[in-house]
Design a protein around this nucleic acid. Sequence first.
DNA 1: TATGAATGAGGATTCATTCAT
DNA 2: AATGAATGAATCCTCATTCAT
Lengths: 199, 199, 199, 199
Amino acid sequence: MPRTESANQEIREQREAQIRATAAHLFAHNGYVGTRIEDIAHAVSMSKGLLYHYFGRKATLYTTLVDRASRGTVQLFQESLTGPGTTAERLQRLVRQIVEGLTEQPDMFMVVMQAFMSDAVPIEAHEKATRFARQTQDLMSAFIQEGQEVNEVIAGNPEQLALLLGSCIQGLAVSQAMEGRVPPITNTLIHLFTRRCAG
Amino acid sequence: MPRTESANQEIREQREAQIRATAAHLFAHNGYVGTRIEDIAHAVSMSKGLLYHYFGRKATLYTTLVDRASRGTVQLFQESLTGPGTTAERLQRLVRQIVEGLTEQPDMFMVVMQAFMSDAVPIEAHEKATRFARQTQDLMSAFIQEGQEVNEVIAGNPEQLALLLGSCIQGLAVSQAMEGRVPPITNTLIHLFTRRCAG
Amino acid sequence: MPRTESANQEIREQREAQIRATAAHLFAHNGYVGTRIEDIAHAVSMSKGLLYHYFGRKATLYTTLVDRASRGTVQLFQESLTGPGTTAERLQRLVRQIVEGLTEQPDMFMVVMQAFMSDAVPIEAHEKATRFARQTQDLMSAFIQEGQEVNEVIAGNPEQLALLLGSCIQGLAVSQAMEGRVPPITNTLIHLFTRRCAG
Amino acid sequence: MPRTESANQEIREQREAQIRATAAHLFAHNGYVGTRIEDIAHAVSMSKGLLYHYFGRKATLYTTLVDRASRGTVQLFQESLTGPGTTAERLQRLVRQIVEGLTEQPDMFMVVMQAFMSDAVPIEAHEKATRFARQTQDLMSAFIQEGQEVNEVIAGNPEQLALLLGSCIQGLAVSQAMEGRVPPITNTLIHLFTRRCAG
DNA sequence: TATGAATGAGGATTCATTCAT
DNA sequence: AATGAATGAATCCTCATTCAT
């Protein structure tokens, strides 16, 4: 008796998820060009042929990762923007959620960063990452401005502050990915951008 | 009649400098594996063969860049630590110098970052970059602690603050390298880590 | 559906044998450095890539050949030493077997000789060949001494006689490999080292 | 005051001799393809450019060596053939002279051997070596036959005996070149081919 | 769905040879 | 005569991708 349609579907999804996770890890550590299809196949205990069955090409696999990571983070932003609470509360929640996500899946962050920073990746991935960077930078900037208006965020050019905050987050992702741990730094990070003196 | 010793010496030095600058740029944008020797040779308008005449192998060229950039930055740290002025003044000066350097040579920064973050680089380069990261992190941490003791730097775990400050600097390097410009952000950056309220 | 395990195994073994034979021939005639992987690939009608699939590197392929040839000949020696018959009979049998083998596979002999004589071969191959040369020289020497003790072999320093006998054999291998034929010389050769006068 | 014409000439000849000796050594040990012009230049403490001044191309240098070595040996043969003494005496003298030469300049012998055995050498060198091999084989063969006629040389097919004797000589050259020494084997060697029993 | 044999274009490296000085 | 900078063709080796089974 053949497996049911849905059982097959489920297996397939599990496999894909496994491939994505493994590929993200390898890409994160070795870069796009430095990661071989064979490495990925070996890491998921599967033949090259089968891997190709799931992801037609290396570029597709990579771009998919960038896409998913980007979407996930952007969604966090959007939820924070429209969610409940004061501006400061929502900004804090956002930062917390990002740091949390980054702690659990640093590889995905690394891949996006890398796709942004490198020209030696599939062009589509690079463009996606660039759009993502701009988008989050803008959203963060708006967020900060809003926070400044209610006196909850430190003074300064919002775009510049957003750049710095974004840099801090990326730095944490690198720490997590490279050294396997990030200190429980979120409070310090938030504190850094929070208005501390009565004004 | 052969060229004089010094004439050859001069040719060598010019060529090497030219190669280093160009290679740094390409490595910064395409990564170690993604940069082809042929690209570098073409960019400096010389044959592959000649490039190999100067740097026996791709790995050597790359590692040399990491080494030079690391040394340069470490030296800035050391000068700042032992230089004149209050802690805050010296820390500020350090940050300014780094940002200045990074504005002028973002590629070198990128290469070190990349060598730190990637496993797909010559192992020697990776190790150098890792040592560099630890070293600057420690120096910065000590610096911050010193600043805190004289109430000139924001409160918080010095190591964590150093990590964040370092991340900000890296973020600026990325901005400069990728978008070709960094906003005049140094003051904001310094402000972020400076104690702002009487207390 | 993938090929069965054994089908793959069979393909592998056939291919490997095919590669070894062809490679031996080319190496024998052009030397290690003078033989291009592409030549071998072309001669066995397969792509370079596939050749590398089977033998990771040129050096491995070469060293494998040296190893096999050495082992084969050493085994002949050992069988002769422990086999039945008088000393003279066994020595004669050994020489006959070697010459026979050399007539059928002169290339293998040439490769070992070459690996012994040249420094421009993989070091492992050179060392194997050197060990082989010493080993067979010693075995032959002992054999000759034994033959002298029962008055069946010509008088003289056994080591020197072994060297000369070995040289003759090598000379035959060269003849066979270069000119494609060796005269039916075995009897003459044996006669040369056999005691001919009543003593 | 410029050097005199003849002084220049002398320097030139010395240099050339030095180059030949060094090149012979390197070619003998590393083969034609495995020896780099730069290696030779370095070994004679001279720039590549200057080396090219003396020998226009690698092939020329190599072929010159083969040529000189061949001629030298052929000359020995001819002198022996026409010299004084009985056949046995002249044959012995020839063998002694060859072994003597081979002891002093094993590299030259190796180069000729190699040029004969390998197809990966300049075609001219290969052809010269092949002609040389044939020529000496024939001369030796005739010599042996002559010796047999006066009952001074062992019985057997002269060509085959010549092949064996030649092989022995080559084997000695290899010993000398590879291990730096040949045992004082000449008597044994001569004894091998000499008629020993009254009859 | 699953495997790994097979291909070939691409990239690192070497080296004979030339040439300006 | 002397040097070593400069070139580029040749060669090793890798790896994404395809395909027969």
